[in-house]
Design a protein around this nucleic acid. Sequence first.
DNA 1: CATGAATGAGAGTTCATTCAT
DNA 2: GATGAATGAACTCTCATTCAT
Lengths: 207, 207, 207, 207
Amino acid sequence: MSIRSEEKKKHIREKARGVFAQKGFRTVTMKDIVDACGISRGGLYLYYPDTKTLFLDILRTEKEEAGGVIEEAIASGASAGEILRLFLEEQKRELLRSGDTLALATYEYAFGEKDEYLQTQFDEAVRVIELLVRGGVHSGEFVCGDPGGFAREVMYLIEGLKICALTMDMTEEKADETIGAILARLTARPGSRRKKGKKGEGERSDE
Amino acid sequence: MSIRSEEKKKHIREKARGVFAQKGFRTVTMKDIVDACGISRGGLYLYYPDTKTLFLDILRTEKEEAGGVIEEAIASGASAGEILRLFLEEQKRELLRSGDTLALATYEYAFGEKDEYLQTQFDEAVRVIELLVRGGVHSGEFVCGDPGGFAREVMYLIEGLKICALTMDMTEEKADETIGAILARLTARPGSRRKKGKKGEGERSDE
Amino acid sequence: MSIRSEEKKKHIREKARGVFAQKGFRTVTMKDIVDACGISRGGLYLYYPDTKTLFLDILRTEKEEAGGVIEEAIASGASAGEILRLFLEEQKRELLRSGDTLALATYEYAFGEKDEYLQTQFDEAVRVIELLVRGGVHSGEFVCGDPGGFAREVMYLIEGLKICALTMDMTEEKADETIGAILARLTARPGSRRKKGKKGEGERSDE
Amino acid sequence: MSIRSEEKKKHIREKARGVFAQKGFRTVTMKDIVDACGISRGGLYLYYPDTKTLFLDILRTEKEEAGGVIEEAIASGASAGEILRLFLEEQKRELLRSGDTLALATYEYAFGEKDEYLQTQFDEAVRVIELLVRGGVHSGEFVCGDPGGFAREVMYLIEGLKICALTMDMTEEKADETIGAILARLTARPGSRRKKGKKGEGERSDE
DNA sequence: CATGAATGAGAGTTCATTCAT
DNA sequence: GATGAATGAACTCTCATTCAT
């Protein structure tokens, strides 16, 4: 695979990304890709044998190119709490942008092909959150008796928010509220009353 | 539409249900249905013009026929807490059965056709949970400052669990743990520290 | 075939006529007829085995029930010239009404099935015209050296007008002018030069 | 659209022409064309999306490739009368060949799709005839008071002959006679009585 | 490498026609 | 007689995939 052809693959991925973001995975045809890329039918097959392979390659690239934010924060010596906040903020931005995301396509893909991609991503995120929470507990920022369970719960919530964003109405307000509640639980002071981020009534005295 | 034909439609729905449960929504063709039902190509069109209409009719029926559990519990005078536990148990059973469920098909359907079905279902469930929580608070079973926000959070968690069950590994253990944590928050005694139980031992020292 | 069933056939013909008038012949399906008649699919087959048979029966009926005008005129002792004028007037009315006529369906039918219906109709009309012209010549109303050829020419013109009315623009003006010219030729005074005049006035004193 | 593919289109048009000539327009399916051309189902769609587009392209080509006769005659300095005779002769040949013509298909097409094709053709022919008649009058070959009306009448006659040729019996004799009568009227000497000639001889000694 | 014409399988859909009730 | 459910053939159209150039 020469350099030229790696550039061509990149071009294909970039154009195809838009198609997947718009149409999801299942209904995307090789013809859609060909049209979007402005290359020949046969040409596409030289690089990608089917939409599945192409899509996975796009996901791989996406992941490689992204992710920097958290790493930077860690490098800059931010506290665990700050980093977790950043992480959740990032997730929120992502899920609110659902029209321009591969989220839908990724779910559709996962529905059809039971491969491990999503699981891996999920587990990795859980691990990161757990580490951050432990860090926060250690530094006194957070209070949490079961960082592992908590981390998984957080990720389930985020998946729930994502799927709701894709299939129902989702507002920034709702997302903020839910994510705020997550953090609130971590910072609840023993013996004190916790409050969920909603204005006014949002009063919870669950301890 | 005679009685005969209503029976036939029922037969079609039942056979088609299996197809949707197995293949999801997008990839199901009229031919798949025809084959599963053992009827003729044209015959199916007498009852359903396309997979979409058929699928929605299956969902409608499913909903009508289900749902009894909660109603019965209410009728039997169970406490709010018992009913909520039952509801969550039901959700758990549902999501663990994911191979035999229309959940995947429903998501696939929702991905393609932005209709309000999922939203309506979601909102209704939120409303039910909220009522149960309020009932529990009133009777002293539960402690919760923001039943509405809490109910939405619960549903996001459940959606998250569902999507994870469909696309990743999901064990009864994980589901139990997460759902247990939900309930634990409602029954946390004021003044005590809540902890989320660890896997395996399922030990919770929160009361 | 009982009386009841003859009535039913009549009902079918009447409803079906509208369908043929609107859609022509080729594209009319048994289903169209069934829908228009409000009878059952199988029921229609008890009376007519296909659209062709039904259509021919409609034509036959139409012809039987129509035609009175000329006969009445003859009976009332009108002159040959008056009757011919009446006949042409009738043809004109017919062709201008083309949306409500079976003309299109009849042509479509004839295109597909080479039966003799149209030919018979045509020949009969030629014969009638020829007789009228001869009558007119005899009575001194008309001047014509070749009534047979003239009659056929008239019918070709009428067929031409009909087909133009069905496939292009046709105005009463154009039809009048052409039909007027036909009559003008019959009444041309010996020794004068005939010229085709402009619209409407029929008679040309063109020099 | 490369040269290769233009040749292919031509090949399709040629084969399809035979199908339309034989079956008319309405009943021709893409499969008929495919079979006649010896290409694949999908292959045809690369060139023509439906029978309508294909048929119109055939008509267009037909028209482009034809028509030379008149132009040549004009170029060769023939008199208006000679050209008109040629034109009518051409029309006659055309209508007598009706088994091998697109006339039927064209009418069927026009019955279904009210586009302007026929009207345009008709108007153009009228215009040509009118010019020729005027030319003949100017040169003393013809006598005609209303070339425009006359030209339209001629075209109605021709349409009538065409439709009769398609749906009834049409012999060269009948066509000759009618067309002869048209010309006879143009050459009638002032002051003489015109008669339409019978039987075959075409030439009328009616003065 | 790249092209795009060509193929053929397969999905959707409509109807003429039959037949048990 | 009358119904209308059921069948299956036929048509339209779209794509994944191949292959000669």
